[in-house]
Simulated assay, not measured.
Amino acid sequence: MDKLKIQNSLSRYLAIATLVLSVSACTFMGLDLQEDHKHKVTILEPDIHMTAWEFINKPLEDTLRSFELIRDAVVYAGLEEEYSKPGRTFLVFNNQSVLRYDSNGAVNSGCYFGREGVPELDENGDPVLDSLGQPITCPGRNWEDYPVEQIRNLLLYHIVEGEYSYHNLGPDNTIAQSLSPVDTANKVHLRIENDRNAKLRVNDFHGTIQSSIARTANLKATNGFIHVFDTYQRYGVQ
C-alpha cells in the first residue's frame, strides 16, 4: 500500500513539474500567457451592395464562382430587367453547370449543354441522320443553338417571387412561386438542412427529378437574395 501511495505522489509531482516547465518555456520563448479565454465573435456580412444583375456581371477568376455563361443566357433571352427588379430570390448557376468537360475532353452529360443536346449539322447546315433517319444530337455549343423560349423558361424558373433566405426558411419545405410561365414547372421547394451544416436545398422532396445544395447561400443583393449553385435546377418527379 505504501508503494502505491509513493507512486501516486510521484505522478502528481511529475504533473506539476511538467506544468511548471511548460509555463517557463512560454516565458523563455517570449510568449505571453493567455489571461482571458474570451474571443471576439464576428459575423460575415451577407450584403453585397449590388443588384443580382450587377453580381452576375462581376468578373471573377474562380471558375466555380463565375457567371459569364448565365450572363450570356440572360442577354440572349432578353431578361436583364428581371434581374434588377426588387423583392425576388435568384437561384444563380455558375459556368460549370452550363459547360463542363470530362477528363477525356468530352462535354459532361450533367451540364446543360451536355444534357440538352442539339441536332448535329453537316457542312450545309442540315441535320445529320442516323440509320433510322432520326437526327443525331450533340452537345450545345452556345445559347443560340437553343430556341430562345427554352432559355427564357430555364432562367425564369430560377427567379422566385419573394425574398427567401435563412431568415424565413426552415427544415420543412417552403413552396415558392417562380416566374416560369410553365404551369407544370413553376414551383420551387426551398428548405434548410436540419443539421450543423445548415445547407440550403432546392427541390428536395420525394420523387424529385433533382435536388440541389447551394454552393454559396444568403447573399443579400439590393433587390433580394442570391443563392449560387454548381448545377441548374430541373423540376418534376420521376
Rank of each mutant, 00 (worst) to 15 (best):
S9L: 14
L10P: 12
L10I: 15
S11R: 10
R12Y: 11
T18M: 11
L19M: 06
L21S: 12
S24T: 13
T27H: 07
M29L: 14
G30P: 04
L31D: 01
D32G: 09
H39K: 06
H39C: 13
P46M: 10
H49V: 00
E54D: 13
E54F: 02
I56L: 12
N57C: 15
P59R: 02
T63Q: 03
R65W: 05
R71D: 14
V75F: 10
Y76K: 05
A77C: 07
G78V: 08
E81A: 12
K85H: 02
P86Q: 00
G87F: 00
F90D: 02
F90T: 01
L91W: 06
V92S: 06
F93C: 07
N94H: 04
N94E: 06
N94W: 07
V98E: 08
R100A: 05
R100K: 14
S103G: 08
V107H: 03
S109M: 03
R115W: 11
N124G: 13
P135N: 01
I136C: 02
C138W: 00
P139D: 00
R141W: 04
V148W: 04
E149N: 14
E149P: 06
I151T: 08
R152F: 10
V160D: 03
G162Q: 00
Y164W: 09
Y164G: 03
H167Q: 11
N168K: 06
G170D: 14
D172F: 12
I175M: 13
I175S: 11
L179E: 00
L179D: 00
S180N: 12
D183C: 03
K187M: 09
H189I: 02
I192D: 06
D195Y: 05
A198Y: 07
L200F: 08
V202Y: 09
D204Q: 11
F205P: 13
G207M: 09
S211M: 10
S211L: 09
S212A: 15
S212G: 06
S212H: 12
S212P: 13
A214L: 03
T216I: 09
T216M: 04
L219I: 12
K220S: 15
T222N: 05
G224N: 05
I226W: 08
V228F: 04
Y232D: 06
Y232G: 04
Y232L: 11
Q233V: 08
R234Q: 13
V237K: 07
